[in-house]
């Protein structure tokens, strides 16, 4: 996503009276609309004191949910990095018919409701699904297992890396790679020595966003996970489970872990944006 990169010298001098109330309105609205929800998470999590908060965080089911969330991200993010790099290479280094259609297809998961994504997977791998009878004959169960969570998370997060890399690699062109190829470098050498150094920050940027969504996905995962306590509950599902158990303090305690993830994501994002600007992205 684009971010400001205009040199400060081109910007207007300190605002006159008109902008001052605009800035004020912006700050107040953001404080109410965005900072408010952020602060109340910690307020609610600590409502019964630090000892309860600690006990909630160290609850066995919550710890298992953290573990499953991390494992899911560890499987999903590398696969979507590979997909993103392959798609970006094919799309930006070559000309072929149907390129626009391919780009739109890559965008599909971002426009589909997470619940719809879940239903799609249920109707593919579920017992009533397209592959259902075939999977049953082979005695393989996909739905309501950890692999189902991973598959649907792959769907939901697949565009992140690709859509960071494609515009950047398009701007960078192919000249450097073509020189390397003319000099006799192999495909892998060209990618590792020429392309990768040029795209590494954007790649990381996409991976950070992909990771945040993979760890935080709720709707799609809730359809395919079956919500089996201590087995197929990811951290966002655990938050919902505790909340519906009338354990709001516990739900908010689990939510602080995900909020911390959001903070780390935002910090990494801001840091990476400074680097990607240097590479001609954003």
């Amino acid at each position: 996503m684009a971010i400001s990169h205009q040199p400060d010298s081109l910007l207007q001098a300190p605002p006159s009276k008109a902008p001052r109330w605009l800035i004020g309105a912006g700050i107040v609205l953001t404080a109410l609309f965005i900072v408010g929800p952020l602060l109340i998470i910690f307020d609610q999590a600590l409502a019964k004191g630090l000892a309860v908060f600690r006990a909630n965080l160290l609850h066995a089911e919550t710890l298992h949910a953290v573990w499953l969330t991390v494992v899911t991200a560890l499987v999903v993010v590398p696969l979507n990095i590979l997909f993103g790099v392959a798609a970006a290479w094919a799309i930006t280094k070559f000309e072929f018919p149907g390129k626009k259609l391919l780009l739109t297809t890559i965008d599909i998961p971002f426009s589909v409701s997470p619940i719809v994504a879940g239903v799609c997977y249920l109707l593919l791998y579920g017992s009533n699904g397209l592959f259902g009878p075939w999977l049953e004959a082979m005695d393989v169960r996909v739905m309501f297992t950890v692999p189902a969570i991973m598959l649907v998370t792959l769907f939901v997060t697949s565009p992140f890396v690709a859509r960071e890399l494609i515009p950047l690699m398009q701007v960078q062109g192919r000249d450097q790679e073509e020189v390397a190829a003319t000099l006799g470098a192999s495909g892998w050498q060209i990618f590792r020595r020429v392309t990768l150094p040029n795209i590494k920050w954007a790649l990381l940027y996409g991976a950070v966003l992909c990771n945040a969504r993979a760890m935080g996905e709720f709707g799609a995962v809730s359809v395919v996970s079956g919500n089996i306590r201590g087995q197929t509950n990811t951290l966002p599902l655990q938050v919902q489970l505790l909340y519906h158990d009338y354990n709001a303090t516990g739900a908010f305690a689990a939510a602080t872990i995900l909020t911390l993830l959001a903070f780390v994501t935002l910090i990494l994002k801001a840091w990476l944006e400074r680097h990607t600007r240097g590479q001609g992205g954003h």
């Binding site: 953001t30 965005i34 408010g36 929800p37 966002p236 938050v239 995900l258 994501t265 935002l266």
Partner: peptide
């Protein structure tokens, strides 16, 4: 940076936070 928070914060967390608020 705060403007990006809604994209970084898992939706279930946003849901319970807004409800409490």
């Amino acid at each position: 940076a705060l403007i990006d928070l809604p994209f970084a914060l898992p939706t279930a967390v946003a849901g319970i936070a807004l409800t409490a608020l």
